[in-house]
Design a protein around this nucleic acid. Structure first.
Length: 372
RNA sequence: GGGGAGGUUCCCGAGUGGUCAAAGGGGGCAGACUGUAAAUCUGUUGCUUCGGCUUCGAAGGUUCAAAUCCUUCUCUCCCCA
């Protein structure tokens, strides 16, 4: 499902085309998150026009609301939400992790309470594959056990053991998918922040030979150096020919690090969330539009950006929208941030093709002002 | 003209003798946000040489002590004429 186009000469970075049921995706790629079947504060059509061909949806959320009946009735998530390109759905493993107060993990599956009405539900690796198949997901994720950075080796091992078993069962259930469903299954590597467990998880997940591989359990609150170290450590075990996905990262510095480690895909709520809270990406780093210093600033968010927002609106006006709590503020900044990241990934891909990724990374971070 | 209610820190609004520089909202300012229970959350918001100083419509008074009690003045709102 992946055609590698170019490998960087001095890092593990590569470019390629990922072939999916709803069209090709150029990688490395950032995937906007649309948890509830919508990338928040922006129309799918606008996301499409920016160039994105793969976005996320969330099994946990969509299963609870609107529920399977509604999505099946529309013929799947694409039709339901009017998105013609690819959708990757997360398995709910992370929600189980982030809603830890309600979870109960057993061998069979995970029991949890709905954040909407408190009702009890159970996810099993099999049921989650079935749900995602019903959604018509182009990429579906195996149910996993995500853990925080401060747990013991023993606990991490147990989480890993369950993750592997669940992945096996997911793989088996996915093999039994109905004819005509072309969605791909990705296994997820866990192992917390223990090298032996990361290695073991990688081996066990690779053994299952899923179409793509994800690295999970990173960017869960650990320090940046720890993220970087475990990212590179884990990435070295990943096979060349398969798409590699690091889950949950979305700042330019983390993405550059991941690309350098040979990662092809990442997703994150960060760009769209900070947008709704008034923070924008620029070539010179983040700016918080609500700050007083932008009150009379008639320049665009990022003078070097060619997006519709930067071509038409000033920081002063956007600041006003946020101060006045006008809904257009979050909408416009979401549009800018997603455009910014799309352009960013285009530049990253170009730099890889021209064997100058490392220089690009350095230049970018010099301007942007961060780095791991 | 008569009767009633009230003026609190940028705004609204608690507070009726000390534990009050004064609750709580709002607004302002700043920070956070990384497989979305997030158009959310957190901090801060009289001055200060950090010992204090100045604030609760104004002036005066009672008291060891007043935003809180008394007197006068002033302004606002409501009802009746």
């Amino acid at each position: 499902m992946l055609t590698i186009q170019h490998k960087d000469t001095d890092t593990r970075a590569r470019t390629g085309i990922m072939h999916l049921p709803h069209g090709d995706v150029e990688v490395p790629a950032f995937m906007p998150v649309g948890t509830n079947g919508t990338v928040k504060a922006i129309k799918h059509r606008d996301v499409d026009e920016m160039g994105y061909t793969l976005i996320l949806g969330n099994t946990y959320h969509l299963y609870l609301r609107p529920g399977m009946e509604v999505i099946k009735q529309s013929g799947g998530l694409h039709e339901f939400s009017s998105w013609k390109h690819n959708i990757l759905t997360d398995s709910g493993g992370f929600q189980v992790f982030s809603l830890a107060t309600f979870r109960k993990i057993k061998e069979e599956g995970v029991r949890f309470r709905s954040h909407i009405d408190g009702a009890y539900h159970v996810f099993t690796p099999e049921s989650v594959v079935e749900i995602q198949e019903a959604f018509g997901s182009d990429i579906q994720m195996a149910l996993d056990v995500c853990t925080p950075p401060d747990i013991s080796h023993k606990d991490a091992l147990e989480a890993l053991r369950i993750t592997t078993n669940w992945a096996k069962r997911a793989r088996k259930r996915w093999d039994e998918r109905k004819e005509g469903y072309e969605g791909k299954l990705f296994g997820i590597i866990q192992g917390n922040f223990y090298e032996d467990l990361r290695k073991r998880s990688a081996e066990e997940i690779l053994e299952l030979d899923t179409p793509g591989i994800a690295i999970g359990g990173l960017s869960v609150g650990e320090p940046p150096e720890m993220f970087r170290d475990y990212l590179h450590y884990t990435a070295q075990f990943l096979p060349e020919e398969k798409p590699r996905y690091v889950m949950g990262i979305g700042t330019p510095d983390y993405m550059l690090e991941a690309v350098e480690a040979g990662i092809d895909m990442f997703d994150c709520v960060y760009p769209t969330r900070i947008a709704r809270n008034g923070t924008c990406f620029t070539q010179e780093g983040l700016i918080a539009l609500k700050n007083e210093k932008f009150r009379l600033d008639t320049t665009p968010i990022d003078p070097s950006c060619d997006c519709e927002v930067c071509r038409n609106y000033s920081r002063s006006y956007l600041r006003h929208l946020f101060k006045a709590k006008e809904i257009l503020g979050p909408m416009l900044v979401t549009q800018h941030n997603l455009h910014f990241l799309y352009r960013f990934m285009e530049e990253v891909r170009a730099s890889i093709r021209e064997n100058r990724f490392r220089a690009y990374k350095q230049d970018f971070l010099k301007r942007y002002g961060k780095g791991l």
